[in-house]
Design a protein around this nucleic acid. Structure first.
Lengths: 360, 360
DNA sequence: TTGAAAGCGGTACCAA
DNA sequence: TTGGTACCGCTTTCAA
């Protein structure tokens, strides 16, 4: 079928070992034979069987990536960052989606383990740390991204979620809002961090929010917009309506905006809305959505670098590293109240560039 | 390191072969030994080394997927459809992105070939068919998706692009537009098909479009919205302005809408806009965008099934199959002029459901 | 019902 | 500079 070293060796009357050495640029091969071999390889379009090589070297040059979903652009951007770095080092990504299902995720991880990937990069939907223990038993290097786990000293790359919450909330404060509500996410590190940042920002500015101002948007990852719409409706029915809402993520924020607009309110005049994730088309929405950028591509790149460094060390169980990227505010009309000028016609600029704590 | 068959065999005082047979549910094993082995496997959390198995069986249970970009939701939705079907059959996806670069794509394909994937699924950015010949030489089953190639009798799964163009154009006609322009894409099957459908629809209804009504949006895949904005500006500056524009894809349509709105025109009253791709957040845009749905997930699923069937046959060089999915019109405000009612609050419905040739 | 032996296509060590 | 040999972890005859 496919052509093997053996074929070339027989063909040229040399040994297999010689072929193998040429392939890996071993020094102790005469220039002449090297050229002969290379020539024949090219002619026959030889490609080493990486499965065989993986078996003997124990390295597959494959990294397993487990994400809840590729359709959410956050994860596909992470994947992009990952693969651009990994590719340069000869690694490829074996991508599994857990479909937000912890049980499925476990299965995918097991499969990846069986395939002997060289490292695992996981945006987990787990609620317990058990499956990570199993990875550790295998002494498989792994990097958690996006979500971290309390009490699990694992390698981690993500955004500083407390800072996310702080940034969003202080922005709302800075534009004059005082009754600031929060549509929060589930009991995971990202949502908890953002909630914490929200609380701290309020406290720092001497503001208070009644308990009813923090709404839990259920099914927030699956159909965030529907959930956001529901949550916003609750908020708008309160006796004292909030004048701003910080939403756990962008889909939620979009749903929230829809609810606000549908009930005849103006965004941001009656209620300002800010999300998180800075999704690609945020500035093409009915009201361009302010958001906190999580630098998803950066997360991917950093995770790749971390994974590469983990694989380098032979078996040094180095202390887990945690890389926290800094989020950035991207203010648009949903908080600023003015349409961000449309992009320059002849420029390659892609995203809204209103960055920084845009105090009016 | 990881635990092997040998370990279990030694442990239980049986031979490796026995272990192997139990693992694969071979019949000629006594129930008693089977249970003993299974028990020990579970205790030790044994996972077969798939790399080793791949070497001897020649099947890696891995499918290579090459796409231009995962961030465009079209491709991530295709990937979702693919993996959901493949997963059920024990296959995983090795995903490579070509970054819209034909040279890079060739390299990725070579790498996938070297890794001995069982089949290849490719959304190609190539302009020539050469690299496919190389895949065929290897007798590697492969399925092209999205874009097909004239004169290349390969397995293909995609949408009927002529129908896409027809559907969009006839919809514009049906809502009363008569001066219908088209922002077209590059010289590839998808763009050509849509252009053809556009022309046929016009002809069928006795409408004419001056040459200037067909604008080529350059760099259309990379920054479609910028390109769409530029193209629309050209159209709006024509002596006789079009009253509708069918855009090659959604980003282009969004850019086109931005240009129209920025110049003070109303969408769709002054100019109706329709795109293609039906991207996920189309109904949350400033003006919810009408679009043609390409059933991206369906493309993935069909491609998976086709690939599976190709791998089944031992070496029967069956005639290539071509699967054409039917596109669907999703009419929203950018052509209908009315805001599609917001989604029901308590329903799980995700997308706008306005489907069919919605004549007012 | 069980297992010994021969590979799968490479790599690594060491001797020639 | 070259190549013999053992082996990576598993599957596949085929004999016991």
């Amino acid at each position: 079928m496919a052509i093997r070293m053996k074929d070339i060796a027989l063909d040229l009357g040399v040994s297999i070992v010689t072929i193998s050495k040429v392939l890996r640029n071993h020094s102790d091969i005469s220039e002449e034979t090297r050229q002969r071999v290379l020539k024949r390889m090219r002619e026959l379009n030889y490609q080493p069987n990486l499965a065989a090589r993986a078996l003997v070297t124990g390295r597959s040059y494959t990294i397993g990536l487990v994400v809840p979903d590729l359709v959410h652009s956050f994860f596909s951007e992470v994947a992009k960052g990952l693969s651009s770095v990994l590719r340069q080092h000869g690694y490829r990504l074996l991508i599994s989606t857990s479909e937000e299902d912890p049980v499925l995720e476990r299965g995918e991880i097991d499969d990846l383990l069986a395939r002997r990937v060289d490292a695992l990069i996981i945006a987990s939907t787990q609620w317990t740390v058990e499956s990570f223990r199993r990875i550790e038993e295998r002494e498989m290097p792994y990097v958690l991204i996006d979500r971290s786990f309390l009490g699990l000293p694992a390698n981690f790359v993500g955004v500083d979620d407390v800072e996310v919450g702080r940034l969003a909330t202080e922005h709302l404060i800075s534009i004059g809002c005082r009754r600031i509500a929060h549509i929060r996410g589930p009991e995971v590190s990202t949502a908890m961090g953002r909630l914490e940042g929200y609380r701290r920002a309020l406290a720092r500015h001497g503001l208070e929010a009644p308990p009813a101002y923090v709404v839990y948007g259920k099914s927030i990852d699956d159909a965030g917009d529907v959930s956001g719409q529901e949550s916003m409706t609750l908020l708008l029915n309160l006796a004292t309506r909030p004048d701003a809402v910080f939403c756990y993520n962008d889909p939620t924020a979009m749903g929230a905006m829809r609810a606000a607009l549908a009930s005849g309110l103006r965004v941001p005049e009656d209620v300002a809305v800010i999300g998180c994730g800075n999704f690609y088309y945020a500035d093409l929405l009915q009201v361009p959505l302010s958001s906190i950028d999580q630098d998803s591509t950066g997360i991917g790149e950093q995770a790749a670098k971390l994974a590469l460094s983990l694989m380098e060390v032979k078996s040094a169980p180095a202390r887990p590293r945690s890389v926290l990227l800094q989020p950035k505010l991207v203010a648009r009309a949903s908080t600023l109240g003015v349409q961000v000028p449309s992009r320059p016609l002849l420029s390659g600029l892609r995203r809204s560039v209103a960055v920084g704590d845009a105090t009016p």
